[in-house]
Simulated assay, not measured.
Amino acid sequence: MAILKLLRAPLKYLQGRGALLNFYEETKDLGSSYLFICSKSGYKYCHEKIEKSFEGSDCKLHFEVFGGVSSKSEIQKMRKIVQDEGIQVVVGIGGGSAIDTAKATAHYEKLPVAIVPTVTATDAPCTGLSVIYNDDETFDTYLFYPKNPEAVIVDSEIIANAPTKFLVAGMGDALGTYFEARACKRSDSPSLENGGISLSAMALCELCYKTLLENGYQAKLSCENHLITPALEAIIEANVYLSGVGADNGGLAVSHSVYNGFTALKECESTMHGSIVAFGTIAQLILENAPKEEIKKVMDFCYSVGLPVTLKEIGITDVQRVHIAAENACVPGETAHNLVGDVTPDQLYDALLTADLLGQEYFK
């Protein structure tokens, strides 16, 4: 029996300059008692705007700076606050870990969740899942939810004033979206939501890729100079919404498996998720024997915005170590197996080294 097509997304998505000043107006139907789970910078840059949006209301607000990792004990701590204070709405403010902690807390307490990303480094804000860690910060599990967030509110001023490296990493994460969904579609593999891939999902994924090519370089320049331009707004939407909803409903393939594989190498620990996903996308296209014009277009884009096109840029100096990453990227259950005809560690190793050779030509 064919997999039924499925499409999921946040209930509401709001983006623009000063969007947080509308926070109360956009979430007031969810409840009147809020727990804001914040990163340190999330609290610093967002709390005043949010408090201002609640002026004149009788809502109860509790801002809590969390420990930095979406761990089991951190989630338990937040659940206790919810229970002790009769919280009705959970809000995550910050990067991926704050967002994942808020989603998990809301899920276990059966409450609505709103998300306020302060960086666009990944597509976590819109997705219906969290990455959960053990208390020693080692990976534990992916937690899948029956629904996506009730609201995602992105204030472009906050993104424009965040370090540009986060915007660039988000573009790397978003770059894989279309090519991974296309691979899943070709092999009839399910999406992250375990459904068939709809025309709407593929359209979002393709729009994500086109938006990156058209606006990426200019958006980077805008962000470096804290300027809010149409190009920056377009890339924020691509990184957060198009990539998030696209990946959720389009599926993953080699690009993200390559990231998972490289996490086994100590020298890549400080390399951002999106940077490795971008390099993994180049390797995936090589494995698929994609037209050389398509590979060149992707590599030109990466080079223009500062995403890696060589192994050296992601921290690898000993190419033999890539064997370890390739083995880890191809373990059973990894999304690399969503490629038509499958992929072996040796094939992936050869593709990664070929990507590196092509990338080195940019620096000659």
Score class of each variant (00 low, 15 high):
Ser222Trp: 04
Ala234Gln: 08
Ser191Met: 08
Glu224Tyr: 08
Ala174Asp: 04
Val91His: 03
Leu21Glu: 11
Gln218Cys: 01
Leu358Glu: 08
Lys185Tyr: 10
Tyr178Glu: 00
Ala174Gly: 04
Cys302Leu: 12
Asn225Ser: 10
Thr27Asp: 12
Thr354His: 09
Leu111Asp: 00
Glu109Lys: 14
Ile282Glu: 02
Ala114Arg: 11
Asn239Cys: 12
Glu64His: 15
Glu26Asn: 14
Leu129Asn: 10
Leu221Ile: 14
Tyr13Leu: 07
Cys208Arg: 10
Tyr43Glu: 13
Glu137Gln: 12
Thr211Pro: 02
Gln88Thr: 14
Val331Thr: 05
Leu192Tyr: 04
Asn338Thr: 03
Glu293Met: 13
Ala234Asp: 11
Thr263Gln: 05
His273Leu: 02
Leu129Cys: 02
Ser53Met: 13
Ala264Gln: 15
Thr127Gln: 09
Ala181Phe: 01
Ile50Leu: 01
Leu221Arg: 15
Asn22Gln: 15
Gly196Cys: 13
Ala151Trp: 07
Ala98Arg: 11
Ala160Glu: 09
Cys330Gln: 02
Cys126Pro: 05
Ala238Phe: 09
Ile75Trp: 04
Gln88Leu: 08
Tyr13Pro: 01
Gly172Phe: 00
Phe179His: 11
Pro10Lys: 10
Cys330Thr: 15
Ser198Val: 06
Leu357Trp: 03
Leu111Glu: 08
Met299Glu: 06
Ser32Trp: 06
Phe66Tyr: 13
Tyr108Asn: 11
Phe63Asp: 03
Asn215Met: 07
Leu339Ser: 05
Gly92Asn: 04
Gly86Leu: 14
Thr335Cys: 12
Lys60Ser: 08
Leu227Arg: 15
Leu143Cys: 04
Ala9Met: 14
Glu150Gly: 07
Glu206Ile: 06
Val154Ala: 07
Lys147Ser: 12
Val258Leu: 05
Leu61Asp: 04
Phe262Ile: 03
Tyr133Gln: 02
Ala203Pro: 00
Thr118Ile: 10
Ser187Phe: 10
Leu4Gly: 00
Arg186Ala: 14
Asp136Ala: 06
Phe63Asn: 13
His256Pro: 00
Ala219Trp: 04
Glu74Tyr: 01
Phe66Ile: 04
Lys12Trp: 04
Gln88Cys: 02
Ile276Trp: 04
Ala264Cys: 05
Asp318Lys: 15
Leu199Thr: 15
Leu353Met: 08
Ser53Pro: 01
Ser130Glu: 06
Asn239His: 04
Ala19Pro: 05
Lys72Glu: 04
Pro345His: 06
Thr27Gln: 09
Ala329Asp: 00
Gln88Trp: 05
Ala219Thr: 03
Gly96Glu: 01
Pro149Tyr: 13
Asn134Trp: 09
Gly195Ile: 07
Gln360Phe: 01
Cys59Asp: 12
Gln83Glu: 09
Ala151Asp: 09
Asp173Glu: 07
Asp350Phe: 05
Val254Glu: 06
Val131Ser: 06
Ile236His: 05
Lys5Asn: 07
Val309His: 05
Asn249Ala: 12
Thr354Trp: 03
Ser275Ala: 10
Val343Cys: 06
Pro190Lys: 15
Val113Phe: 06
Gly68Ala: 06
Asn215Tyr: 09
Pro332Tyr: 08
Ile153Gln: 09
His256Val: 04
Ala124Asp: 00
Gly250Asp: 08
Leu311Ile: 08
